[in-house]
Structure formats: structure tokens, C-alpha cells
Design a protein around this nucleic acid. Sequence first.
DNA 1: AGTATACCGGAGGTTACCTCCGTTTTGCAA
DNA 2: TTGCAAAACGGAGGTAACCTCCGGTATACT
Lengths: 213, 213
Amino acid sequence: MVAREVEAAEIRVSAPEGSVSTDRRPRADAVRNRDLLLSAAADAFAARGADVPLDDIARSAGVGIGTLYRHFPTRDALVEAVYRYEVDVLCQRADQLLEEMPPDQALAEWMQLFVRHVATKKGMLSALKPLLSSNPSFSDQTKGRAQAAATKLLNAGVAAGTVRADVDGADLLRAVGGICMSTDQERSEASERLVGLLFDGLRHGAAGSQVSG
Amino acid sequence: MVAREVEAAEIRVSAPEGSVSTDRRPRADAVRNRDLLLSAAADAFAARGADVPLDDIARSAGVGIGTLYRHFPTRDALVEAVYRYEVDVLCQRADQLLEEMPPDQALAEWMQLFVRHVATKKGMLSALKPLLSSNPSFSDQTKGRAQAAATKLLNAGVAAGTVRADVDGADLLRAVGGICMSTDQERSEASERLVGLLFDGLRHGAAGSQVSG
DNA sequence: AGTATACCGGAGGTTACCTCCGTTTTGCAA
DNA sequence: TTGCAAAACGGAGGTAACCTCCGGTATACT
């Protein structure tokens, strides 16, 4: 299952000679269907939890069940792809926000987005956790990208003098993640308030204001 | 499903008049089969995780699938009963250990038993966690009993002067539980070592030895 | 335009879940 | 001890989800 992906990658890498069509451009319908599936799966997982029948996902994506299984040989592969995709979206939003508004405001917005991101992922959490703990490289990749986005936002704020300098991306994610985890079940409202508090703390010790120590 | 249990309880309660056979002794085969199922389920969950087919459990218990479903209308009911049963066993072992050996040694043994208890429950954890969080009274009951057992062991040690007095059952369980949770997957060996450390700490400040502050 | 290649999609085998009901056992009373 | 009604037994079978397989089809390259 997972081995198949690895195998495919190896073939591509280990074919330096007579491989004419090895890196052929993927077909348009394949790309389209993959996106449809990803989007349908994201909705289904968020709305109905990680146990939603794959048949239903294929149907709501408007493709056959065979197509789903070809793109994502196992349920785990689908869960992983959805998660990867949504982390991508979240990280891209960081860049967009930085272009649209001042850094500190962008940071505040992004932190709230993060909370909602986690809240909608609650449903697939039971399927996701074993995946993250059994697959360190996957876990590291997503964590790394999220940290990069957080760091970028923080640095922009620091450069503008509106965010304190003694917190890095990893710290920020740990703090926000911890808040999301600690507030049990469905109450993202409480999380949003706590994260707001956290953000005020981030702004408090900025270069523009007074630092205690 | 769950409604059925509630209904049954209500019927029993609301029959104060002509109920001659309401509290008839349970049939011997019913009791026996329930125990067989519990034992088989415990083994199956530990060996093959929480997703083991109920058919298999019934078969390995030597009863029909219908019997399993009568005793435990849902998978959750079975998981809960198994957990309850194993917590009972663990708590009873505390009393036994106190009769067989000095209190501090009994405490050490019991802490290690607890670690192994958690380790073998890893498989059913994914099924257990939602149950514990959605059913506070169940969670409280089991926690309460475990705390009582831990407190009993601690008190015996304190009375004998071999265990320090400033730790209560709740603290102990939190500490040991935390250690078990933090050491990821399958490595109960690490947990056992850490718990050994913890135990040394418990013995260190005992009345018989020197207390620092 | 032709063709090899990759993709599409759903029929159907397999497995697990759970209900239903005829049969068997057992506790109680006469 | 015997009879009987209540309770439990057990497995056949309907339902649902999983996943594979393969004939037909669309598409990227020449």
C-alpha cells in the first residue's frame, strides 16, 4: 500500500537510461479527479468523522470507487493527503495575509485560522493521530511547514516592531496547539479567546513597547 | 442500543407492586458465559487491538454471537465492561500485595503492574478514549477506584515509615499515568525504568530517612 | 491522425455487523 | 421430584462497507 508509492518514486529515480515516458505529464482528468476527491474527502471527514464510507466520498466527488482507490490505495493515504493539502492551504494563507494587512494583524488572523483549522480536523483526529506517530517523516514535514509559516509571520512582526522577538515559530505552534488540545470537544470559541490572550502577550513585549527584563 | 439498557433499568425500578420474580437469581450459564466473554475479549483486545471482529471474540469464548450481543449490546458496552473488569483486578491485586509483602515493596510491585496494565490496554485505547470522555461517571468511577487502591498502598507505606507522606493517590496516578502516556508505543521497558525512579523518590523522603526541607 | 499508455468506473466477492427467532436450559414452586 | 414459565442460547441470514479486477475510454505523445 504505502510501499506502492515508495516503489513508484524509486522507479522514477532509478531510471536514468532508456526512460522516455517515465516523466510524462499526468493526464488532465487524473489531476482533476484527484482534486475532486481531496475536496470531497475534506468535507466528508469534517462533517461526518473519519469513519465516513469511502463509497460516499467517491460518489460525492462524482467519480467511481475504483478511481478513489487508485489515487489513494488505503484510507490512511487519503487521510494523509487531505491533511497535507489543508496544511498547505493554511500555510499559503500566511503569505496572503502578510500582503493584505500589517504583520501583527496578519499574525492574529492566522492564529485564529489555525484554531479553526484544528477544530474542523477534530473529526479525523482519531485516524490522524496513529498516522502521525507511526510516520515520523510525515509528521516532521507538516510540522516543519507550519513552523516556517509561523516563523515568517513572527519575523515580519518583529521587523515592524509590533511583535516581541523572544518567541519562535515552534513555541508559537506549541502554545496554540496546546490550547486547542486542552479545550475539549467542539468548543473552539474558548480556544479563540485564549489564543487572543496569547496574541496580546506576543504584542506586549514588542520593541515598540516596554520590555521588562 | 444504549437506550435499551436505560429502558431495562427503568422497568426494574418502576415495578414496585406485583413483581414476584423481579430479582430472580441470574442463571448460572449466563454468569459463566459473561465471564468467558469478558476474558476472551480482554485477550483479543490486547492481542489484536480494538477492531477485532466480535464474531471472533464470541467464537474464542465458545458462545454464539447472539449471546455476545445480548450481554453487550454494542462494542462500546463490551469495551467498557472489559476495562471495568481489569481495573477491578488491578485494584484487588493491591490488597493481595499488601498481605504478601512489606508496604513499600507492594507499592513498587503495584506501580509496575500499573505500567503493564496500561501497556496491554494500548490496543483498546482508541476505543476507550472517546468512551471515557463522553461518559464522565464511568471515567470518575474507575479513576476513583484506582485512586483508592493507590492511596491504600501509600498510607500503608507511610504507616510503616518507608514511604514519604506528602504524596496522595491522585498525585501518584497522575505521575505514573503521565509516564506511561509520554513514552510512545510499545516501549513499556522505558516506562518501567522511569516508574522505578519515581518509586525511589517516594521512598527517599520517608519518615525513616532524612527529609530535606 | 494514430497509438500506446494511463485512467475510468462499477460489478461483485469478501468480511464484519447485528437482528431475529426456534430451541434449550434453569430457577422456582407445588 | 416434577412441571413450567422465564430467561438464555446460538447461528442463519440480511445489510453494509471494503477492496479488487478488468473491459472500455480518454489523452498525451509522435
